[in-house]
């Protein structure tokens, strides 16, 4: 079974601070980490490989520093890692990113399953996974919280919905995006780290992928970010205390005072 996991490197959001004057993220000195949801995707890939055999290839697009995150994925146990890096890819929105990833998947050749985290914690769009599946012309299921099994070229998964869950079986090759309920990602091992240090990570450029310059990077991105801002802080609510009758009376009085009722 050939598994490809898509991974994004993001700023460590537990460390991100906001410049209160300009309302922008202070990115200087903030460490970069593997997008947390992608850790679940890597872990699920490793578990499926342990169960069914095969290989796990981790794919990422970004600047050269992403190599560090790919090495971390290798030290967890991934077999191969590939970085897509080129000035031409910079400024990509989800569509241009999915296009570039799809060209890389085509270059890798055949695959059985692509696994993505449900979304990246920096952009929160949750679009790249589904877009990639569409471009490759394979079925996809989002928000997967459990893989029930793979048999006869079909995968059975359970996806989370707002009301509950859906159990879906669909043919492979295909793509799933996963939520954090699916597993608990492992830590790297020392042997894995030593192996990861020796593993060569190929870097594919636009010319190697044969991408259309009109479809990559800023040029290939129909979405333009006009402004990033922090929403104004809302004041805290008011808590009514006392016996239940008392609380209700206070609430009704307040609603009348504010002309809500």
């Amino acid at each position: 079974m050939k598994i490809i996991v898509c991974m994004k490197q993001v700023p460590d959001t537990t460390e991100v601070k906001i410049n209160k004057e300009t309302n922008t993220l202070i990115r200087e000195g903030v460490a970069s980490v593997i997008n947390p949801f992608d850790l679940y995707a890597i872990e699920e890939g490793l578990r499926l490989r342990e169960e069914h055999g095969g290989t796990v290839t981790v794919l990422s697009m970004g600047p050269m520093q992403v190599i560090e995150s790919l090495r971390e994925a290798l030290s967890m146990g991934a077999d191969e890692a590939v970085l897509l890096s080129d000035r031409a890819f910079a400024g990509a929105d989800t569509l241009a990113t999915a296009y570039t990833l799809s060209k890389a998947v085509e270059k890798i050749g055949s695959f059985d399953l692509i696994i993505c985290g449900k979304q990246a914690v920096d952009g929160d769009t949750a679009q790249v996974g589904p877009e990639l599946a569409e471009m490759l012309g394979v079925p996809h299921v989002t928000y997967v919280r459990r893989v029930h099994g793979i048999a006869d070229g079909r995968i059975t998964v359970e996806r989370m919905t707002e009301e509950g869950s859906e159990k879906i079986r669909f043919p492979l090759p295909g793509l799933i995006t996963v939520v954090k309920e699916i597993n608990e990602p492992r830590l790297p091992s020392i042997k894995g780290k030593m192996r990861a240090k020796k593993t060569e990570i190929p870097v594919w450029s636009a010319s190697e992928l044969g991408t259309d310059p009109e479809k990559t990077g800023l040029k290939g991105s129909p979405t333009w970010v006009m402004k990033v801002f922090t929403p104004e802080q809302k004041g805290g609510g008011e808590i009514f205390e006392g016996e239940i009758e008392e609380q209700v009376a206070k609430l009704v009085r307040k609603l009348r005072e504010t002309k809500i009722v």
Binding site: R186, L187, S189, I190, K191, G192
Partner: peptide, 20 residues
């Protein structure tokens, strides 16, 4: 179990017996 999976139980053991 986490320490075992991380290979840490074998750090002082010779490689011929599966250590580091």
């Amino acid at each position: 179990k986490v320490l075992a999976d991380a290979d840490l139980f074998g750090v002082y053991i010779p490689e011929e017996y599966g250590g580091l």
